[in-house]
Amino acid sequence: MPKTQGQPGMLGRVTGALGRSRELTLVALIVLMCAIVSLGAPQFLSISNLDQVTAMAAIFAIAGIGEAMVVMTKNIDLSVESTIGLVAFLVGVTLRQGDLPVPAAWLLGIGVGLLLGMVNGAVITVFRIPSIVVTLGTLSIFRGLVFIIAGGKEVNLSDLPAGYANLATDTVLGVPVFVIVAVVIVAIVGLLLWKTRFGRQVYAVGSNAEAAAILGIRSRLVTFAVFSIAGLLGGIAGVMWGIYFGTIYATSASGVVLQIVAAVVVGGVSIAGGTGTVVGAALGALFLALINNALLVLQLPQELLQAIYGAVILVAVSADALLSRRNKGQAAQEAAR
């Protein structure tokens, strides 16, 4: 990173510093928003409300981490919401029939998520088809499978073991279980990307696939692995979705791919591939969950939510583009000097 010698000005320096670390920007935004919202509605910062928000944020963070890895390789997975819906429904039906003990049903669900991710990865890499097309297709194929399993009936909370839904808000030493799961996954995937050869390959494939190929990286294998991991994490998110809501419909989790991609983009993972961190994606998920909750506690109309998400996505990517253009300009100035 070249050192700037021009006079970027106060504003330039601040945005430059924030732009260099999207994670810091998000932490600042999250703190700022909590402060403002709690002025209008003190119950925003109550323990029970925060438990609710963080449980939801954890689900989106886990799915978002998978999506972030996919986006880092310059791909996209639009089918993840159907994976979540399918796994949540499947686990619910299995528990309703009582065939399997609870942990086995969860493992089954996570395994199905992995399988769906492998299907995406295989079709994309074997036939060399753009991921957007494949996952747009599997988005509706996987959802169709949910309708087949459902056969017009939903899974009700009363069908599930007693106390099942309480897991969503259970805490260990005051920390919600869901948050612990999310933090552990952030740590594992973060280390995987940061410290291992595979992690560097993920970034290499996303930033320049041809150069990666010349360096001997098997980019299709990396892509396949990334989609498989995204499926696995989608499966975990699906299991947690089922626990959180208890009642699961065939259409559950429809449309949440928007929120997941938004979390990733807001978290600073560039859609152009090759950059970003999973911590950013997780913070992005938390930020969006807080917006959602803020509307609730401030008693603003819920109808605003989607419009706000749309605006947040557009602002985040516009800011990315502006900052990267400025950095490029500075680098060019430096090179010319």
């Binding site: 996209i76 957007i132 928007l258 991609v261 938004a262 983009v265 859609i271 152009a272 109309p301 109808e303 605003l304 939510l305 989607q306 419009a307 706000i308 998400y309 749309g310 605006a311 996505i313 557009l314 990517v317």
Partner: peptide
């Protein structure tokens, strides 16, 4: 990228319809 922009307006336009 058109993909992200129109994903954003996919939410934005639907949100406006909701509002």
């Amino acid at each position: 990228p058109a993909l992200v922009v129109t994903l954003g307006t996919l939410a934005l336009f639907r949100g406006l319809a909701n509002v």
